[in-house]
Design a protein around this nucleic acid. Structure first.
Lengths: 228, 228
DNA sequence: ACCTGAACACCGTTCAAGT
DNA sequence: ACCTGAACACCGTTCAAGT
């Protein structure tokens, strides 16, 4: 009960904070109970006094990221235009996600909500409700947005992992026979923007394209609902 | 070189086929190299003569599912309406995915394309091109669709895992204070459709809602492009 | 060429024991 | 109450040896 407690006292918060830093540094594969404990200067089993098991640790990690999103989003001011405000919140959430490349995978593997995730989600629902959308439409909207509501889309076949060899002309030749449309499209894209070497395309602009497609569609349904 | 070879001769195909059946039966967590080998009546290390490692096995699994999708999709006849045909292909792909609940997770963790995945994707691109969309727009469309092009969306916080306890009134009460909009929405949904007990909502209709939102939006952009 | 068995270097987690 | 160390039951994978 005094301020002179040992500086390194273990706590759930300190564990989560260290786990986030470790995952940022080494990727989610580098986050093991043993490794996390070592990082904290403690034995692996000590963690189990503050966290039920690894699943619970990951739940905590996801919620820690959601807390960061809440902080970032709090700085935004509301304009009263739900679509504009929603777009801003989601793109801000994305900035947080980009700081934690492992977070999308963890979010997708979660099965329960932490308090910060709940509050972030609640705010999105409130924003759409304030725009006059029905509960039903908002519900559809949340499902349609899916992970985009949290600022990410899990890229299918992310070329980042194997882009180096995949771009080889031999493989493109081999593909050309079986996938003429795909090859033609990729050639066209490469021609248009030869500078996009971090993957085949600009993730950010693709994210915004998909997001705007959905937001525009939702706005249309909302208007249709209002006139009914 | 004779037909009287031992019936149980190991081969890449037989390994993949058994792996799919095993994953269907026990989930992806039940698919281990050791377990798969046992299922084949063979030692674990024998698998490594036909498959480089587990990553390669999973690559093969994803492509096996894509092959099934190709088969299912081949039965569809083209109407010439790209949007209608694309919708049909994707919903057919979804039927295959629903037979393999582990497949979405495997698809999302892949980093390289198998031949069947490539051909399935190529057909989608061809369909949109036939509708007059530019390479650029088709490229955006593929990104916007993302995993939906393969008939699935990875549900965030799938309540299937913990729905039993999560629906408890105490927890809803506790949530009500911090998440009024969310609670109100969920209450409204439950009121509208008290029968939807497999999760909070009907995945199929939510999938189609999101898909149609995107397809409608793409159609609009395609028309805009045509007039430009 | 194909398959085997033992072994290695990891995991998450249980348990009895320490302070 | 909190932390430890050894141990258990798993993984994927390497390696030398069998046929």
């Amino acid at each position: 009960m005094t301020d002179t407690t040992v500086r390194a006292a273990l706590s759930r918060d300190r564990i989560l904070q260290t786990a986030v830093a470790l995952a940022d540094r080494e990727g989610i594969g580098g986050l093991t109970m043993r490794g996390l404990a070592a990082e904290l200067g403690v034995e692996a089993m000590s963690l189990y006094h503050h966290v039920a098991n690894k699943e619970a640790l990951l739940d905590g990690l996801a919620d820690a990221v959601a807390a960061e999103m809440q902080d970032a989003v709090a700085a935004l001011e509301a304009t009263g235009d739900w679509k504009h405000d929603l777009r801003g919140r989601i793109l801000t959430a994305r900035e947080v996600m980009l700081r934690h490349p492992w977070a999308p995978g963890v979010f997708e593997s979660r099965t329960s909500f932490g308090p910060h995730i709940v509050r972030y989600t609640d705010a999105l629902v409130g924003l759409m409700r304030s725009g006059g959308m029905s509960h039903d439409l908002v519900h559809h909207a949340m499902h349609a947005l899916g992970s985009r509501a949290f600022g990410f889309t899990q890229e299918l076949f992310d070329p980042a992992g194997s882009a180096d060899e995949d771009a080889s002309p031999e493989l493109l030749m081999q593909m050309a026979a079986e996938a003429p449309n795909l090859v033609e499209m990729l050639a066209h894209i490469a021609h248009d923007d030869p500078g996009s070497t971090l993957g085949w395309c600009d993730d950010q602009s693709e994210f915004e394209f998909g997001l705007d497609l959905l937001l525009d569609g939702l706005e249309r349904r909302a208007e249709r609902e209002r006139l009914a």
